[in-house]
Design a protein around this nucleic acid. Structure first.
Lengths: 326, 326
DNA sequence: CTGAAAGCGCTTACAG
DNA sequence: CTGAAAGCGCTTACAG
């Protein structure tokens, strides 16, 4: 006799009624529900999600596909994104499954959904050169790109709209008297880095800033250090925008060694608002990349897609955070 | 006609044979397996894990229970631990489900297993004061404590044996001529912090070091800053052990501001080997806390427990890493 | 409002 | 070596 049947016997009803009562069916009157709940409580019955999945053909699980590289492993990015996902997923009755992407093909990824390990995929921080999405889309795999998107393709995405924050930053710099700016770019295989550079150029001209040649970084702190060493005090811009905070940290560190004062000699603006941004001295003036909101939004979009509801891509607004480095 | 039946028809065998061939049953001869695989390939058949789970009553999923607090969210700890888990879990055919612990009770946790959302729990970095394990154990829930253990209780655990690394550190300091040492403790609600302090005291006496009064930190970088301000150059120990790297960072930063040179005036030793340990100047001399190995070991222990195999708790050895701060 | 019955997609014991 | 059959634990359409 299964546990569900024992609850039924205890409550003096049929197993079907137990299911209905416990899942909150509107057909069941309060009196029956009470009786069943008491019996379930007494016996310690917890319905199996496996039975439910088997019937519905859905796993009620979402896969987060995380690139397996050190940059990812050793950063707060993954943690913060996953936290945002869990919060959103639990509200809709889903849980989050981690899928390690150490070179998975489109077929591998599709198989995770076809096998119902998960019902859909949250693709974390993929590269512009990632070629897997077309095949996944053809396989009708529900997926949402996070912090990436592919122009002219119907793939769903959620990301950060860098423009609002950067625009506020320019306005602030202008009132402060800055007239020239340069950009420290991140790896060009990431959509955000590329977009931020073009937004930087557009806004610089909009706000009447002189644009100095950009520096090529790779998102790492050490690339910031290296760029500091390349800077020529005489030909320096009034302000430097970095494609992320980590490069801003490295840049400030490097400039300190060369006795260039931030923000007196040079204003520096980061991007992301990593938790370390306020631990540095000077505290990094930066543009908030709302990680948690983006990941929870992506999760909702994915669930909508899975459930056949309307699913629309979203770019969440960034926001300027003035602190000490600019 | 289900997909599996279509494969069967295509291959000219029964659905049972399809299952056996695809799951690698030794009963099936190579010729039949080839035929079935070709048919499955052609039709694009991926067996449903849900059917398998339904039959076996197991989900082949492991829950990582992560404390939902900012310290956790914004650190590399969670990422690195999860990476170690995925690697070990995939080898044994399991996946990793994230469970956000924002005040879950023992009953809540048990329910995750009883409902077969997961087959067992990996309890990440729980506190000494955590009172949930007794009830979970009584409920026969498979779980493994990570970076925690409860003396005189049969709960499985995997953690870091701080002794070997700290012992090497003392030996090194002794040859360097250090004769006195002090300890910067972490929060006392964590087993590791408490153990490290008592190991510190035991080793100091073993190596003939004079022990100076310890400083109370809370694992945060800012507590390291604060402690630096409390230090009296005249009464300072030759070496300071910190219960983690983050406090060592803060301590070094704070000492820099007061023109105390590390390691010339004072040797500082961290704990964990966070990725940032080599980014600081001076690079932190520290004791490696083998995160990935601990989490993959914990995962194996849990799977053994779930599968009824022999499961034994493990303390993975720490290792001394001499760099610049000592 | 409630019960008996079918069915979700597998695996494996049983029979051959 | 292979197939027909039972059963894993649910949900819900159907009948009452």
């Amino acid at each position: 006799m299964s546990t569900r049947e024992r609850v039924a016997a205890e409550a003096g009803v049929s197993p079907s009624t137990v299911s209905r009562a416990l899942s909150g069916s509107p057909l069941i009157p309060e009196s029956t529900r009470k009786k069943v709940e008491a019996a379930a409580q007494k016996i310690g019955y917890i319905p199996s999600l496996i039975g439910r999945s088997h019937y519905s053909g859905r796993s009620y699980r979402l896969g987060v596909v995380v690139p397996m590289n050190n940059r990812m492993a050793a950063s707060e990015y993954f943690s913060r994104m996953v936290y945002g996902m869990i919060a959103a997923a639990e509200k809709r009755g889903y849980s989050i499954n981690v899928i390690a992407d150490n070179g998975l093909t489109a077929e591998d990824l599709s198989a995770r959904v076809k096998s119902k390990q998960v019902d859909g995929l949250l693709m974390l921080n993929t590269r512009i050169s990632d070629k897997r999405f077309g095949k996944m889309h053809k396989d009708v795999i529900p997926f949402v790109l996070i912090h990436n998107y592919v122009p002219n393709r119907p793939y769903l995405y959620a990301g950060c709209d860098s423009r609002p924050g950067m625009s506020e930053a320019f306005r602030y710099l202008k009132t402060k008297g800055c007239r020239s700016a340069a950009f420290v770019s991140g790896s060009n295989d990431f959509r955000d880095a590329v977009d931020r550079e073009s937004i930087f150029n557009a806004l610089a001209s909009e706000y009447g800033f002189k644009v100095l040649p950009s520096y090529q970084g790779d998102f790492s702190r050490t690339s910031g250090n290296r760029i500091a060493a390349q800077m020529n005090v005489m030909k320096m811009a009034d302000a430097v925008f970095c494609a992320n905070d980590r490069m801003a940290f490295g840049l400030i560190e490097g400039l300190k060694l060369r006795d260039i004062n931030v923000p007196k000699d040079l204003s520096i603006i980061g991007f992301d608002d990593q938790s370390a941004a306020t631990l540095m001295s000077p505290k990094i003036t930066t543009i908030e990349n709302p990680f948690e909101e983006i990941s929870s939004t992506a999760t909702e979009i994915l669930i909508n897609a899975i459930e056949g509801k309307e699913a629309k891509s979203v770019m969440v607004s960034s926001r300027f955070l003035q602190r000490e480095s600019a």
